[in-house]
């Protein structure tokens, strides 16, 4: 499974004016990547993530998740895509406040129609994996920011999605908590081969990522890969060639 984006454009209407947010991006994300999209505010990071997640539709261009052309899916099919194949982690944790940690994680499995017993075992196991074994029956407001974000990670991975989209996951956390969270995700990527795609401002995230796509003004002006320790700088001319990594 891979995500491939071809010649993607997105304009927003703002007070009657067309404001371009993404201007021609080509990108392919392969199974098992641990990649970050960086760039200044307004460069289109979040928009790109939203389009990949089926929350937003592109103005032009093609986006495929696996074999599915997202432009051809209706709202319900997009819902199902998000439910089964994509996990989200948001900046503001975004747990369901009336559900406990365990219930929040279970919720996704419930939507998937997993049976009660299996739901509970799987959710409990995942919460233990993210280090929240003791807190499974707490409500979000009874957890710290870092803990809430761990629940959010657990919720995102419990359904074993093909990719996890994390929109500035560390932005609301302090340095240490952010680092721990990132380590956790790194571990999960390593051990379970879960694909992660971040959008971030955070230097630490950029350093940990094995691939860094840098956006400015809605286009990618650099796409670098890192094997061990340092990025292999791989500047590209925008839209000049099809990438193959």
């Amino acid at each position: 499974m891979q995500i491939s984006i071809k010649n993607l454009y997105k304009n927003y209407q703002l007070n009657g004016l067309e404001v371009p947010a993404i201007r021609g991006i080509d990108l392919t994300i392969k199974k098992g990547e641990f990649s970050a999209i960086a760039g200044p505010s307004g460069s289109g990071k979040t928009t790109l993530l939203n389009i990949i997640g089926g929350l937003d539709r592109p103005t032009a261009g093609e986006i495929r998740v696996g074999n599915d052309d997202l432009n051809k899916l209706n709202q319900k099919e997009l819902s199902d895509l998000r439910l089964h194949r994509i996990g989200f982690i948001f900046q503001a944790y975004n747990l369901i406040p009336v559900l406990t940690a365990l219930e929040n994680v279970e919720y996704v499995l419930l939507l998937q129609g997993v049976l009660k017993e299996e739901r509970t075992t799987r959710s409990t196991r995942i919460l233990e994996e993210v280090g929240l074994g003791e807190y499974i029956n707490r409500f979000p407001k009874e957890l710290s920011g870092g803990q809430q974000q761990r629940v959010a990670v657990a919720r995102a991975i419990v359904s074993e999605p093909e990719i996890i989209l994390a929109d500035e996951p560390t932005a609301n956390l302090d340095q240490k908590t952010g680092a721990l969270l990132l380590d956790l995700m790194h571990d999960l990527n390593h051990k379970k081969n879960i694909t992660f795609l971040f959008s971030t401002h955070d230097q630490m995230v950029m350093e940990k990522a094995r691939r860094l796509v840098y956006l400015t003004d809605g286009t990618s002006n650099s796409d670098t890969f890192r094997g061990h320790g340092h990025f292999k700088d791989n500047k590209i001319k925008k839209k000049s060639k099809k990438k193959s990594n």
Partner: peptide
């Protein structure tokens, strides 16, 4: 409003 958005973005169908 926000929370319903979250529920939908993690795959809750409108009918739910």
């Amino acid at each position: 409003f926000h929370e319903i958005g979250v529920m939908k973005s993690i795959g809750t169908r409108p009918s739910w």
